[in-house]
């Protein structure tokens, strides 16, 4: 795989890696239980931590692909020009929301360093850092979409470009 393809699919690759670990751990645990009548007591927590990472990095991937569910039926009623402005404002708001959550995650992760997880007793920052990573990725993409929206407004509006700035994908 070329470097470029890896970078373009980075969220997908990381998220898939974690979900694979989750599936493998749970399958392994069932097999161990029936074949050897034993279980890995930490498998549940490890599978869960892996899942948390998969979810938040995957949420970044979905953001990139505009897969988060919403409706734009009302905004569609507006003229193309007004739609461009709405997309710009929406993306600006999303930069704010994602940026704020990213900031809060930094505060939260730093405070949760000394809080051990229930079973493994490792720092719960290993888990909460997933939220930080996921929202940092989403902040990055929302800034990208916002810039795309600015370009649409500056360079004159074509339908296709308006779509590019629309957070609700078709």
């Amino acid at each position: 795989m070329s470097m470029r393809r890896i970078i373009n699919n980075l969220e997908e690759i990381i998220s898939s890696f974690f979900v694979s670990i989750t599936v493998s751990l749970v399958i392994l645990n069932v097999i161990l239980r029936y074949v050897f009548n034993m279980g890995i007591y930490w498998s549940e927590e490890a599978a869960t931590i892996s899942f948390v990472w998969s979810v938040f990095i995957g949420a970044g991937a979905c953001y990139k692909k505009k897969m988060h569910i919403g409706i734009d039926l009302l905004t569609q009623l507006a003229s193309v020009k007004v739609q461009g402005i709405i997309h710009l404002l929406v993306n600006l708001a999303l930069v704010g929301i994602n940026g704020y959550i990213t900031y809060l995650s930094i505060v939260f992760v730093r405070a949760s360093v000394g809080k051990p997880t229930a079973v493994l007793g490792i720092s719960s920052a290993y888990m909460s850092a997933a939220v930080l990573a996921g929202f940092a990725i989403m902040t990055f993409h929302s800034i990208r979409f916002f810039i795309a929206g600015v370009k649409v407004l500056i360079t004159g509006e074509v339908n296709k470009e308006v779509e590019e700035a629309n957070i609700i994908s078709k």
Binding site: V23, T48, F51, V107, A111, M127, V131
Partner: peptide, 23 residues
């Protein structure tokens, strides 16, 4: 403290029964 809302981000995801969804 506002950042404690993040507790809920974690607890609502870190749930073993929810793993059934990706599976």
């Amino acid at each position: 403290p506002v950042d404690l809302v993040l507790q809920r981000f974690i607890t609502s995801t870190a749930s073993f029964p929810l793993l059934a969804i990706p599976f």
